[in-house]
Design a binder for these strands. Structure first.
Lengths: 338, 338
DNA sequence: GCAGCAAATTTCAACGTTGCAAAGCCTAGC
DNA sequence: GCTAGGCTTTGCAACGTTGAAATTTGCTGC
């Protein structure tokens, strides 16, 4: 059995409270007793019981990070950053997966399955609507990542998706490409990210006085490799020939698309230039390496964690804020060749 | 403030214990009182306090999964499987990263930072030695993944690395390749995986009556993309010309290596065939797609979680066991072309 | 109408810790 | 020698829950 304060106290011949004082560095403890206690602590291998402390303090030191899928590179990288940053602030992160299922996401966040276990929640929502969130009756603070849910009532960290998508599309336009496809639209989803990126794509066209060819905007169900290959196969089948550039709403879509292009005997970027989004590591080592919009994931993680910690510490109780992280376009071989 | 049993009890006009009984479905509660309590529960939005329960029960329902790096695809995929399986058994997973630093790993596992918080630990060790583990004085059960640490005293789940590596190498030999390089050896590390794979590589050669050319066995510091590119660059610089096949000890190394090969104007697989290890998703969509040894990650996760749960339930207290998961060679374009 | 028994409900204590406040000890000062 | 005041140490209660046992209630049968 694990040693308790009481066991240490008995062994050292002092009261429980004194042991607690020593362990926590509280109050003034005489050198003599302190040493006796410390000896007993190490002899018994005493470790404070975190659960009991949590109960006493009313906080657990745990924050939940809810992401759709842990094995999607973007979320894995984000999770790593969150875990690392949270550790700096003395918090432990529990990563939960919504498995890409809106219902499961809703259930997790609404019911807050482990109520009173987590001090706070960071949610990278897939399909939460404003209504959904308004109904949330959990007690812990929540910070949203990525999706912007207007008037959600919660703090929100994101990048400017419209501007970022516009930047990516502009890059393609400036390379002289004229038939620029977009892969990843989700016009009917509650999730807003895809729609914002489509808007950026359209704005870039307008900015250059171009018409948007709606037949080049291909929706996908999800943002996985397979959706990218499927979308690109569709594009290649359409009349009018292949596009000469593609803006994909994330890197997985882009890598999937590239695979199909190469398999079809098209060259990237000579025949078709491809831009992705997220800057996952695999894109850097692909051949051709992937031009992409790189959100500053560490900044996103940091902003989210710090905001949450601030709320937990009661340092802020004002209205929810929008926090913006940086991003940049990283130009690689998939648009400019070697 | 969150509602407590007491609040519900007052509202429903019953004792705390009765509310507890209703909430837990215990004992026999009259329909009348049950309904009153249920009404009060939903009016107050009562949720059991998990921490208090944990304290009472002496278990938290949390298990820790320690992996070197969460954003390395193999570990992310493994983590996903562990999280999913653990959920089936009512456990929540806390993913911790050792950041690829042996010292940090040692500290985490030895001191068990959050003592008495986790009911059990699943560790994918990077560099724990037998001595390290013997000194562990934590109380919670531990299951090891991957690395086999002889006589560690802990349950262990893995695949047969020697046989798997042999299978991969045999595949290359049977394709008629004669200068087969190996990337990823770590002769001086405590971690054993690399050494086992090297042994499999050697055994395949012996089996076919071939000499192993030690100059084709390239060690790497880690198992990342960058280590793969670096190793392949070295190989290409060596006298004797490029190898005609490479067995990489994981997929990241392989993808890194392929990139360097293609950049050097070599064709994969025509000039150099490449095999990886892990079957990460990115390998499937690479061009050329990656032939690889696919450990059954779900089985690994399941075996580990189930073993841990069994220990926690006190169903086993016998000697630690070795559990073996399946694996298979998945042949793709990087060795047989299209 | 009441013993006898089962069902329903409650009381009490405990899980291991810490906040609070009181108690004990010691030294300095007169 | 006694007291004030500071330093050190301690006891008690509480965080929210549940196990065990005690108590109350309700019912059956005679």
């Amino acid at each position: 059995m694990a040693a308790r304060l009481r066991d240490v106290a008995e062994r050292a011949g002092v009261s429980i409270r004194t042991v607690s004082n020593v362990v926590n560095g509280y109050a003034t403890v005489s050198r003599q007793k302190r040493e006796r206690v410390e000896a007993a602590v190490s002899e018994l291998g005493y470790r404070p019981n975190v659960i009991a402390r949590s109960l006493k303090h009313g906080r657990s030191g745990l924050i939940a990070l809810m992401v759709p899928e842990l094995d999607v590179a973007y979320f894995a990288e984000l999770a790593r950053a969150v875990v690392t940053t949270a550790r700096e602030y003395g918090y432990t992160v529990v990563v939960d997966q919504t498995d890409g299922e809106p219902d499961r996401e809703r259930e997790l966040i609404m019911r807050d399955g482990s109520a009173n276990l987590f001090d706070g929640v960071i949610l990278s929502p897939l399909a939460m609507s404003q209504t959904d969130l308004a109904e949330r009756d959990a007690t812990s603070p929540l910070v949203l990542l990525g999706e912007r849910i207007v008037d959600s009532g919660y703090d929100h960290v994101a990048i400017d998706n419209v501007a970022a998508a516009q930047l990516a599309t502009n890059h393609l336009i400036e390379l002289g490409r004229t038939r620029i496809a977009a892969i990843g639209d989700q016009p009917y989803e509650t999730g807003e990210t895809a729609q914002l990126r489509t808007r950026g794509y359209e704005q870039a066209h307008q900015q250059h006085g171009r018409e948007v060819d709606r037949s080049l905007v291909v929706p996908t169900r999800q943002f996985h490799f397979a959706d990218g290959t499927e979308a690109m196969e569709q594009l290649l089948k359409r009349p009018g020939g292949p596009p000469d550039a593609v803006f994909c709403y994330n890197d997985l879509l882009a890598l999937g698309a590239i695979r199909v292009l190469l398999a079809a005997g098209l060259r990237v970027p000579e025949d078709v230039a491809v831009v992705g989004f997220d800057d996952i590591e695999a894109g850097r080592y692909n051949t051709p390496s992937l031009t992409t919009v790189a959100p500053d994931k560490r900044a996103i993680a940091r902003l989210a964690v710090e905001r949450l910690v601030a709320r937990l510490g009661g340092e802020v109780d004002d209205a929810p804020v929008e926090l913006w992280a940086d991003y940049e376009l990283i130009v690689r071989e998939s648009t400019v060749g070697r």
